[in-house]
């Protein structure tokens, strides 16, 4: 039971990390980046190349990975989001474009890195430690702590800084932001880069758990999207809570039913959550103005 709770929290943290990055893009552009799972995968691939294959020290490797993935995220913005201009909200185009980018990323990764999954060393070594009677990897604790820190960071950044206000303004209206003397283009780019950095960190954190391969985020990506929506898109507290909740519910459900139903149950939870509270756990319902 506790072991299940622990592994649920670790998976939940990973969903939360994905949800946080999906959120930050949503909050400025109003789109969901369906290629985010693949960007996380690329993060893991780059980390593997820098840290394991090339033997660059961990911290430097981490920084390099963050920079590379941030660049990839920015490129993604220019190729799949920017061309739609301000008409993002009304078109399905971005949805297909980001899904297409996901396919491209996966298959390029397959060509370059091969299809064979590879191991990635856990942070804090592979010695198990015993806490409260359950054995766990130090890595699991790192995952929880880092996710919490990132969530807190976002809560502060979005809530209390100038950047946060600028992001809010951008999400309200691009033209209004311009009037206020803020370049909405810059804000959006910043957000994509930030989402790339979180993706890189998420990639490094996930790698020892899922192994590094082109398909590593195939289902995790969709669940990160689900976590963001359960929590209420555009809300970092919600993303964190939504991710953890999803992970824990999933793990607990697994102690009761056949594992084959796992994903079905995860999505059923999401559908029920959305139907009951469409605005998300932490979301606020607005009356539409005509």
């Amino acid at each position: 039971m506790f072991q299940a709770l622990e592994s649920g929290m670790v998976m939940g943290s990973i969903y939360a990390l994905l949800a946080l990055a999906i959120n930050i893009i949503y909050s400025t552009t109003g789109i969901i980046n369906f290629a985010h799972g693949e960007i996380v995968m690329l993060g893991a691939m780059f980390a593997l190349t820098f840290i394991v294959t090339s033997g660059i020290p961990f911290l430097l490797g981490l920084i390099l990975t963050c920079i590379t993935v941030a660049i990839v995220a920015v490129i993604l913005y220019y190729c799949t989001v920017r061309p739609f201009g301000d008409k993002l909200g009304n078109s399905l185009g971005w949805l297909m474009a980001t899904l297409g980018a996901g396919i491209v990323f996966t298959n390029i990764a397959m060509l370059v890195f091969g299809t064979q999954p590879k191991a990635f060393p856990p942070i804090g070594g592979s010695e198990l430690v015993k806490i409260f009677g359950i054995k766990l990897l130090p890595h699991d604790i790192w995952v929880l702590v880092i996710t919490l820190l990132i969530a807190l960071f976002f809560n502060v950044v979005l809530g209390k800084t100038i950047l946060g206000n600028a992001i809010k303004a951008t999400s309200f209206s691009h033209s209004v932001t311009k009037l206020m003397g803020i370049s909405s283009q810059k804000i959006v780019l910043t957000c994509f880069a930030m989402s790339g950095i979180i993706a890189a960190i998420a990639g490094i954190l996930i790698s020892p758990i899922t192994f590094v391969g082109p398909q590593m985020t195939a289902t995790i990506g969709l669940k990160g999207f689900g976590a963001a929506i359960i929590g209420g898109v555009g809300n970092s507290k919600g993303a964190f809570a939504g991710g953890l909740l999803l992970g824990i519910l999933e793990a607990l459900a697994m102690t009761q039913v056949t594992p084959g139903y796992k994903d079905a149950i995860a999505f059923l939870i999401m559908i029920i959550a959305i139907s009951i509270k469409p605005e998300g756990i932490f979301g606020v319902a607005y009356e539409k103005k005509v």
Binding site: A4, S7, M11, Q215, A251, P259
Partner: peptide
């Protein structure tokens, strides 16, 4: 013991 291909959390199987 059964599981889904690609499952990450295999603790239920091991347990």
């Amino acid at each position: 013991c059964s599981y889904n291909v690609g499952d990450v959390d295999m603790l239920p199987v091991a347990r």
